[in-house]
Design a protein around this nucleic acid. Structure first.
Length: 483
RNA sequence: GGUCCCGUAGCAAAGUGGCUAUGCAGAGCUCUGCAAAAGCUUUUACGGCGGUUCGAGUCCGUCCGGGACCUCCA
């Protein structure tokens, strides 16, 4: 099925056509590993996962997916320094070597990140690579040399900057985000660091080292420029090294349009001569209970926080799919409850299909076409789910004949390769430890009921309820489950 | 100051000028001694005011309200 996507470059939904037929090369901006990722971060990663799964399943593409790990930046340096209160006991002893401590610190949070996304149903095997920025320093240095030699960069006080005015004369800037250079808001932090640069809008490609900070050697035209890479350069270099240029899709949160992605385009084209990607896809932000997530409002959650509250990570995954990726997602606890119930309804339907044993024939192809059609249309999960629920509402799963049952299970298997929140199986035997005395009460109640002593029956049920269990009557007898 | 987005029923969320979105919740019904579970049925909308149109949630204007970004936040 053909896939259409909203492309921030053109501000339109366009038919996706890959550079290499049959292959989809996707680069996703990954986390900066200085802390546990919060659920706002998670939306970006879940969107990227959803997109690559739609390409894989609905588009039938051979997907090459890369998500970078930013393991060198101001915050990772700050928090891994000797004496940092962000250094945790689990990370071991600090060595005092800034590069080694940075590595220890970032690998700790990288492993936490991988644990988190795994719980959210993102599969590590779907990545062809999760490159660390620090392992691609030579490629970045090569790119920086190219940019300067092409006339779009300069060295100042040991740092290397991108010359934006030169670039704007030669090409264009503002492909993703229209920038009003003459009208930066007063008070906004324009001079973000102390280095010398020719214009406030120039950005750093390579930062000169500071005392006690990690650095890498950089030989450039006979000059020694020990330092570390700027923020944007890693994506330019790693995209080229791992996917080749141009690749097909670059993803990230809306906040990255400018400056990060805008600068990435400029750098790549200035250094390599081509723009990195033909499609740029950006997910909107997430709010919590209608407010921007912030620590001061007390609505700032990491995945770990939510799991501690007893929330199932897959309900978070499913809830985020109830809104289109380009609209602000309002994360609420009521929403998670609703998502859990909705997800369970589909799961129960699948269990029932598994045990179908009837004669009814249904048209599985038409529901597959309508649901996948919505996913192919700019990854429109809310519409796809509406189609799916419409189908579930009008279908009795248990009366299906063998052919329809097999077709439907095959469809759900495909669908779950996108959503990844269900079990395609028979209803599992739930084994719950019920205390002996509760079972005894339930048996007494059943006897009282058979004796038509309903007053006693009800009072026994009340006792069972007080113990935290629910007794349900069935045709053959009764069943006790934990509340 | 600049750039842009959004205001849809109790909550969430689709909606490409004309046809029941959907989910959760609510209500009613079926089943049941009563329940629970399940199934069926169903009530509530388009921020305000103008305009275009035979017809507007959908297009235009305006006002009100909320939000995002504007040099290292997904």
């Amino acid at each position: 099925m053909n896939i259409s996507l909203y492309n921030t470059l053109t501000k339109k939904v366009e038919l996706f056509t890959p550079v290499q037929p049959g292959h989809a090369k996707v680069y996703s901006c990954g986390p900066t590993v200085y802390n546990h990722a919060h659920i706002g971060n998670m939306r970006a990663f879940l969107f990227a996962d959803l997109l690559q799964r739609v390409l894989r399943v609905v588009g039938q593409y051979n997907v090459h997916w890369v998500m970078n790990i930013t393991d060198i930046d101001d915050k990772t340096i700050r928090d891994s320094k000797v004496g940092s209160d962000k250094w945790l006991a689990e990370m071991g002893e600090q060595s005092g070597n800034p590069n080694a401590d940075l590595s220890t610190f970032t690998k700790y949070y990288e492993s936490k990140f991988v644990e988190d996304i795994t719980k959210l149903g993102i599969e590590a095997t779907h990545f062809i690579s999760m490159p660390r920025a620090t392992e691609f320093i030579p490629a970045m240095q090569e790119l920086i040399r190219n940019i300067v030699r092409n006339g779009f960069g300069y060295v100042a006080e040991g740092s290397v900057y991108f010359n934006l005015n030169a670039w704007r004369d030669a090409d264009s800037y503002g492909k993703l985000f229209q920038v009003d250079f003459g009208n930066f808001r007063e008070g906004v932090r324009i001079d973000a660091d102390e280095y010398e640069r020719e214009s406030v809008s120039d950005f750093v490609l390579w930062k000169a080292t500071k005392d006690g900070e990690p650095y890498w050697d950089f030989e450039f035209d006979g000059e020694h420029l020990p330092g570390r890479p700027g923020w944007h350069i890693e994506c330019s270099a790693m995209g080229k090294e791992l996917l080749g240029l141009p690749f097909d899709i670059h993803t990230g949160g809306v906040d990255l349009r400018f400056p990060h992605h805008e600068d990435e385009i400029a750098q790549s084209k200035a250094g390599y001569g081509v723009e990195p990607a033909s499609f740029w896809c950006h997910n909107e932000f997430l709010e919590v209970e209608g407010k921007k997530m912030s620590k001061s409002l007390g609505n700032f959650f990491t995945l770990h926080d939510l799991l501690e509250k007893g929330i199932d990570a897959l309900d978070i995954r499913f809830a985020m799919m109830s809104a289109h990726y380009q609209s602000v997602f309002n994360f609420t606890f009521d929403g998670i409850t609703a998502a859990h119930k909705a997800r369970t309804r589909v799961q129960d339907f699948i269990y029932d299909v598994w045990s179908a044993n009837g004669t009814e024939h249904i048209d599985v192809q038409s529901v597959r076409t309508s649901v996948f059609g919505e996913l192919a249309n700019d990854v429109h999960t809310p519409k796809a789910l509406a189609q799916l629920f419409g189908f579930i509402n009008k279908t009795n799963p248990t009366t299906l004949n063998e052919q329809s049952k097999q077709e439907l299970l095959a469809f759900f298997t495909e669908l779950n390769n996108v959503f990844n929140v269900w079990q395609i199986s028979s209803r599992p035997e739930v084994i719950i430890e019920i205390p002996e005395d509760v079972i005894a009460l339930a048996q007494q109640r059943w006897q009282a009921k058979k004796d038509k002593n309903f007053a006693l029956s009800d009072s026994l049920r009340q006792q069972i309820t007080e113990r935290g269990y629910v007794v349900k009557d069935t045709k053959e007898g009764f069943e006790v489950v934990k509340e």
